[in-house]
């Protein structure tokens, strides 16, 4: 699954740690999601979408990472 998390985070000038703290997960999780090594659960994807103010499909796409 591909995602635009890194790009959206950069737009807000947040570090991975900032985003991790906002989402209540570890920085390693943010890094793994951004690099496509880990696909987040649906609750975490919804949380990310809410935080970024976009629909889930605006962040995650069903294409091989």
């Amino acid at each position: 699954m591909k995602n635009r998390l890194r790009e959206l985070r950069a737009q807000r000038d947040w570090s991975q740690r900032d985003l991790a703290d906002r989402l209540g997960v570890s920085r390693q999780t943010i890094n793994a999601v951004e690099t496509g090594k880990y696909d987040p659960s649906l609750p975490l994807a919804f949380k990310i979408a809410r935080l970024m103010g976009r629909p889930i499909e605006g962040i995650f796409t069903d294409e091989p990472g």
């Binding site: 790009e7 950069a10 991975q16 570890s26 920085r27 390693q28």
Partner: peptide, 15 residues
């Protein structure tokens, strides 16, 4: 894209 802390590969505080 190179953003803040991207180069950090360790996870000391997480462990």
């Amino acid at each position: 894209m190179n953003t803040k802390q991207d180069s950090e590969k360790g996870c000391a505080t997480d462990t």
